[in-house]
């Protein structure tokens, strides 16, 4: 199990797409490819942009299919962060 604390990387407002992409490429994907499950920990994140979330997870759904969502858990998301995640996962799955 790989736990990734988002707040430590971006602070309370998750908007920096460059960091989101780095997290995906350098941390999430290697963990997934070695068969681990991933917990994205959103504790202390007040808000996130759609662009941040897109850069963080969209390519995982495109590369691995929607089954990847069984391997990723989104922890301690507030209501708005949950909704942003749902928007991105919806449109990525509808676009597959």
């Amino acid at each position: 199990m790989k736990i990734i604390n988002i707040f430590r990387r971006v602070g309370s407002f998750a908007e920096n797409k460059d960091i989101a992409r780095d997290i995906r490429i350098k941390e999430i994907m290697p963990a997934i490819e070695s068969g681990k499950n991933v917990i994205l920990d959103f504790s202390n994140i007040d808000a996130a942009t759609q662009s941040f979330m897109h850069a963080l997870i969209s390519d995982l759904i495109r590369k691995y299919g929607n089954e990847i969502l069984d391997q990723i858990n989104f922890k301690s998301c507030n209501e708005n962060v949950q909704k942003i995640i749902m928007i991105v996962t919806d449109y990525m799955q509808e676009g597959i």
Binding site: T49, Q50, S58, V88, Y91, E94
Partner: peptide, 24 residues
């Protein structure tokens, strides 16, 4: 329009752009 970006014609955008920012 949501989902339209200059970076690709592919639905869902690229790994970096979705074409949703202005719509939001």
């Amino acid at each position: 329009i949501p989902g339209i970006t200059g970076t690709t014609k592919r639905e869902g955008g690229t790994e970096y752009n979705a074409g949703a920012g202005l719509f939001f």
